[in-house]
């Protein structure tokens, strides 16, 4: 957790304060994409290696659809409720 937040703050500060030389600045997003590709490959690797996950994929997919609907409905309801409250106050 500390690693993630530290990396986020460090990255933000480096971008904001122009800490990196020009030739490195353009490389940062490429480094990020490369890291993402490596991570997704390893995630795929552990998914594919795990028989239980492969067998559970249809069930996981169904759960995922329900959870996705839940997140969309929850966020829509809260923002909608807040806009209605805000509108009434005005």
């Amino acid at each position: 957790m500390a690693l993630m937040i530290g990396a986020l703050i460090l990255g933000f500060a480096a971008g904001r304060c122009r800490l990196l030389p020009d030739f490195l600045r353009s490389k940062v997003s490429a480094m990020g994409s490369l890291a993402l590709i490596v991570l997704l490959f390893t995630l795929g690797l552990s998914m594919g290696s795990d028989e239980q996950i492969i067998a559970a994929l249809p069930v996981l997919g169904l759960k995922a659809v329900l959870l996705a609907v839940g997140t969309v409905m929850g966020s829509v309801l809260l923002v909608w409720g807040a806009t209605r409250l805000g509108g009434r106050r005005r």
Partner: peptide, 14 residues
């Protein structure tokens, strides 16, 4: 790799 990815996210926002 995760730290590098999150660093890049922060960097582009900053």
């Amino acid at each position: 790799a995760l730290a590098a990815l999150v660093f890049a996210v922060g960097f582009s926002l900053g």
